[in-house]
Design a protein around this nucleic acid. Sequence first.
DNA 1: AAAAAAT
Length: 653
Amino acid sequence: MSYSYFPETYAEKPVRQPGRSNYNPPHLRDENIKPFGYQTGSSRTGSQAPNNGRGRGRYGGGGRGGGRGFVPGYNEVDRQFREPYRRTRDQYDALAEKLNEVELVDENPSMGINFDAYEDIPVETSGSDVPKPVNTFSEIDLGEALNDNIRNRCKYVKPTPIQRHAIPVALAGRDLMACAQTGSGKTAAFCFPIINGVLKSQSPAASQPAFRRREMTAHPLALILSPTRELCCQIHEEARKFCYQTGVRVAVAYGGAPIGSQLRSFEKGVDILVATPGRLTDVIERSKVSLTRIKYLALDEADRMLDMGFEPQIRKIVQCLGMPPPGRRQTMLFSATFPEQIQRLASDFLSNYVFLSVGRVGSSTDLILQKVVYVDDMEKQDYLRNLLHEQKAKGNLGKNALTLVFVETKRGAESLKHWLCQIGFPASTIHGDKVQFERERALQLFKNGVTPILVATDVASRGLDIPRVAHVINFDLPKDIDSYVHRIGRTGRAGKSGLATAFFSAKNASIAKALSEVMKEAHQESPNWLAQYIDGSSCGDRRYRSSSRFGGRDYRSSTNSNSYSADNNSYSTGYGAADYGGENGGSGYGSADYGGATGGSGYGSADYGEATGGSGYGSADYGGATGGVDYDPPAQAEYGGHGYESIVAGGWE
DNA sequence: AAAAAAT
């Protein structure tokens, strides 16, 4: 197919028409939302969009509009940063410096942590001489600059339970294995002690003479490892917020992104390096980074990092690439789940460690309303369509709620997204077959509400903190209960409530037992029919059983454990619509959030066009967008609701 | 049998 009428240069240099566009995509027409990008007003959106398949070459330049619309000043720095050709080394450094010091503002300050939700949560610690927990940040000596950032910049008022217990342990220099429910503030729990330690070490990289001379090998004092690139970025951003104006240098190393800029960022010194394993190994082997001065090692999602596929890489990094041995470094492992055999494996990396668990290991929070429905594989799409239509019609999750749909395979993700777009639900996908650039953009489009549905593989199951995800749908249930726990943990974060719906089919018998246990622990009602799948094929599956049954326990023993709050009273969570309904309607997507975004450079129209159709699905998507299929709800979109049993709790209305 | 993680 030829689009010769459409000049090639057009895509490389998107034409910006002055003024605002009148175009408002159909799915937003009756809702007065203007997400990123629409304000730039290119006539290309939809109607003229070319059908170019993957289109990356063409869109290379236009793609990245306003990923950071909420960060004042960031776009300008970012834009300059992306025009390397005419810049000298010094200009580069100046820009890098500026980028490092750009103030990251909390995207959504109104979404503070709801601490009431965490009261009476059971906490278990074990190990010798466990340091006492604290109740306030001021009880901890984190230093003036860090305290100021915590209180005034990040608006953290008081520590979450995991922070109350983990920070004193970490500050005492002890190794730590910590389990805490999803969304309860683990990142800060390991970042604060690390930053404090770096500050106390008297030699933050910026002041080291070696780096004034641009020594070619960086020697970070702290290493934070994560299992996915997106999580790596997220931790890096968090850490930079905490480090603002402390002089502590945070750098990031992950695959799929150009290595050059990452390497340059190391040259002026690194105190804290946030990395994924592959790229880290690469930069170590190029002698750009050395681990010999590591004093702090943190593994986020530690159980994932140490499971079968990952463990050799981690072992290599921790044991073979110059890292000081346990005892000469401080090691902290964090996760929401920690199967016993992984704990056993992890003890290789630890020395006289404290085990800490807030809530039960591998349990989900009460804040998430979990539903399981039986849906035949053939009927899943129909069911999903009804569910989404009902959700939209009732608006019971709030107007701007985001829905995260998990599927089993990368291909499945693409085809489901394609179908969703066709029936009038703007969706995008994130999975490992996409290039990093596309992955990050999909996430951004989802966060911004341009595509309020994200279809994802397990790449998005762990750690990602996406505000306003009101509904997690397990279109395909995972084989592994830990994955289920992490997936549903994308909602119900920071003390907010959330909804999780699982489509259970005959294929999922192996997870039935573990699933009903997880639901029981979180005080959820599991349907009676689920029991009939339990005794059949699941009894042989020891792995899932053990992870659930021994959950909450330090595998070493339970004899020396101290219980701080034994009573496991269920706290009332109130599944009213407040969290995702009125509250967000007011402050979430109000002018504040999108005001900033609109002022930014926004998404170029090229971006929007491609994202709408989704990239990587060949011509049909783009053609679809052009023909108005993707964004034009088909006739049958009117929702009857007949014969469709409502599975959403009454309380949500 | 799938997903993720370096080029």
